[in-house]
Simulated assay, not measured.
Amino acid sequence: MSKLEFIEVFKKRTKKLSIDIILLLNTQKKSPAINVITYQLIKSATSTAANYRASCIARSKKEFYAKMSITAEEADETVFWLEILLDSKLIEEESI
């Protein structure tokens, strides 16, 4: 796989993750906890995708590194919120 192919595949994967999380959370019953987690999880998932796309058009290596660092942080936060949903049993593991 070439570098350009990898970039396009990863753009699609991060965007798909965002959409899948939005669709998953849209089916959950509302509660104060779910509302907060939904907000945080959607923010971090969509930010992962957006910052990855931004890194792809970085104007310098330093800017690329900075954007990719944010992407990694947001991806880790996404995993954190998914773990919170699972550990609190607010969502079934099969759903995720």
Rank of each mutant, 00 (worst) to 15 (best):
D20Y: 05
A49Y: 09
Y65M: 14
T48Y: 04
I37K: 02
I96M: 14
K67P: 03
T71H: 00
Q28D: 01
P32D: 07
A66F: 11
L90N: 14
K61E: 13
I19S: 07
N51S: 02
F64G: 01
N26G: 07
V9S: 10
K15V: 04
A49L: 02
E73H: 10
C56L: 11
V79Q: 13
R59C: 06
L23N: 14
K29S: 12
S47C: 10
T78P: 06
K3Y: 13
F64Y: 13
L25T: 08
L82K: 12
A33H: 10
E8I: 06
R13Y: 09
S60F: 09
F80I: 09
V79K: 15
E93N: 11
L90Y: 11
L82E: 10
E77Y: 02
K16C: 07
P32M: 05
R13V: 11
I70M: 02
S31F: 02
K11A: 02
F80C: 03
K89A: 08
T38M: 07
K29M: 06
P32T: 05
T48H: 01
E77R: 04
R53N: 08
E5Q: 11
L82A: 07
E93V: 14
R13A: 15
V79N: 13
F64Q: 15
Q28I: 09
V9H: 08
S2A: 08
K16E: 13
Y52C: 02
L41I: 07
K43M: 06
N35P: 00
Y52M: 02
A49C: 13
M68T: 01
A45Y: 01
W81L: 10
I42F: 05
T78V: 09
I84W: 04
L86F: 06
Q40K: 12
K15C: 05
I96R: 04
E63C: 05
L82V: 15
I7W: 03
F10T: 10
L17Q: 11
S95I: 12
F64L: 12
E77D: 06
E73A: 14
W81N: 09
L17P: 07
E63H: 09
K3T: 10
K67S: 08
K43R: 14
L24I: 05
K15I: 03
A50H: 07
